[in-house]
Design a protein around this nucleic acid. Structure first.
Lengths: 131, 131
DNA sequence: GGTTCTTTAAACCATCAGGTTGAAAGGGTG
DNA sequence: CACCCTTTCAACCTGATGGTTTAAAGAACC
């Protein structure tokens, strides 16, 4: 549907079977048959999963002779990684900043009020991106 | 729901609204009211989204006085990041190795066969982890 | 050209996910 | 206590998802 790339990508990896496929493909290309072997489901079901991974851009199927290989694409993994990393960093940065403030408070010990240190923590923010 | 942690986490981030929430929370804690403000949906719907994020371990709601804040938890982001990174690395490593082989072939130019370099690329692997 | 393997398609089913409405608890504060 | 805001619960609708079965194209190969 009109679902954006990131949504498709995350949704694709939300399924354990699909995640397992990606994990195995990260070791090397495989044919659909090889891929399907460990799972107790119809070949068609496997093709469906592959479809989802392909639509998400996580996997490609280079055309050529019949048993076409399935190949993991790093690009989309990169996208996801970037998104997560960005926000993970932001939180951890806040943690560190908070720790710093706490440490400082502990250091000075007595004077609890020296200016309008933070407060307002909850808003400020403007509106972020999501790009 | 016997769904594992990673599945819940990826599923949680597969929704644009939820991703936006996470993005905004990465800038700082917020109350549900503040969080809900930009969206054109019922408060109950927002609570539902929050529930999903909470069940996925992406968010916590420290108890205390009534308008309880919503706080982003870095731990689960870390888990996801680790998973993705691991596989992204594996693919890229394979890319590099392939490039190296190609470069070598180009370099030697004539003698194409000098030992059992790789082959077997598609299987070998045993069965990977997914840990 | 026929046989066999790979791949795509279609119809169908059960369950889940995002949203709504409506109602009810919880919890502060006048 | 009464009022108001926050939070949760339940029923319901709609559309997507993971599977299945059945059927039919497409490619390879003898």
């Amino acid at each position: 549907m009109t679902t954006d790339a990131l949504s498709r990508a995350f949704a694709a990896l939300a399924d354990p079977t699909r995640r397992d496929m990606v994990a195995r493909l990260s070791e090397g290309d495989a044919t659909v048959g090889q891929l399907a072997e460990p799972y107790r489901m119809t070949l068609q079901a496997v093709y469906k999963h592959l479809r989802v991974l392909e639509d998400a851009g996580l996997v490609s199927r280079p055309s050529g002779p019949q048993p076409r290989p399935v190949r993991l694409e790093a690009g989309t993994l990169d996208l996801m990684d970037t998104w997560i990393e960005r926000h993970r960093r932001r939180v951890e940065q806040r943690y560190r900043r908070l720790d710093a403030v706490l440490a400082e408070m502990k250091g000075e010990k007595h004077g609890p009020d020296h200016g309008d240190s933070d407060r307002s923590r909850s808003e400020a923010a403007g509106h972020p991106d999501e790009s």
